[in-house]
């Protein structure tokens, strides 16, 4: 009787173990996993006083002002393969009574331009600052170039200036990265 019970127990648990499997599953689906995070990140900002466009020592106009900064997070091999789209968003608030041309030149280490974009900012005044938006969406081909860049050169051009010019040109900006990580 006891031997029969033992055999029966062995048999039942053996059947359970042998029958143990991952039914109704498809592990090949792992190949289809695509991680697609969308990341919002602040970029550059500035407040350019109207006085920046006039040389009070020599009483001359300054029609072009420039500044540059490294932006290491823009490129590199790590992000090159997984970045599928990038949207730049620029918001200008202008209280200077001049229209501006603003350009963003993305340069590599050797200062060679890899991607260039520019926009026009509408003229405003101190009582009613004017807001202008500039959105640039980059596709995969453009991104390949952008990710070779290491820094950005910002150039702000004013058509004319004077020592009486007042107001501020404000920029706020962000970038949206659309990443796609897959096998």
């Amino acid at each position: 009787m006891e031997i029969k019970i033992t055999k029966l127990f062995f048999l039942i648990t053996c059947i359970l173990l042998c029958a143990s499997c991952f039914e109704g599953t498809d592990f090949d689906q792992a190949n289809d996993v695509v991680v697609t995070p969308e990341i919002e990140l602040d970029l550059i900002y500035f407040n350019l006083e109207a006085s920046k466009f006039y040389d009070y020592t020599n009483y001359t106009e300054i029609l072009v002002v420039q500044d540059t900064t490294d932006l290491d997070f823009l490129g590199g091999n790590d992000i090159n393969d997984i970045l599928k789209r990038a949207d730049f968003f620029f918001e200008f608030t202008n209280s200077i009574s001049r229209e501006f041309n603003v350009s963003f030149d993305f340069l590599n280490k050797q200062n060679t331009s890899k991607y260039f974009m520019q926009t026009t900012v509408a003229s405003g005044n101190e009582d009613t600052p004017v807001v202008s938006y500039f959105v640039q969406s980059l596709d995969e081909v453009q991104i390949k170039e952008l990710t070779k860049a290491k820094k950005v050169l910002v150039t702000v051009t004013i058509p004319s200036s004077s020592q009486d010019l007042t107001g501020v040109l404000n920029l706020q900006s962000k970038i949206t990265y659309y990443l796609q990580i897959e096998q």
């Binding site: 602040d42 550059i44 900002y45 420039q66 500044d67 900064t69 820094k151 962000k174």
Partner: peptide, 23 residues
């Protein structure tokens, strides 16, 4: 708190280096 990089458009003379904002 990170709010991006603030550019100040300095007047650089005689090959003065740019401000290392990122560093």
């Amino acid at each position: 708190t990170l709010d991006g990089i603030a550019l100040i458009f300095p007047e650089l003379v005689n090959g003065e280096p740019a401000i290392p904002y990122y560093d």
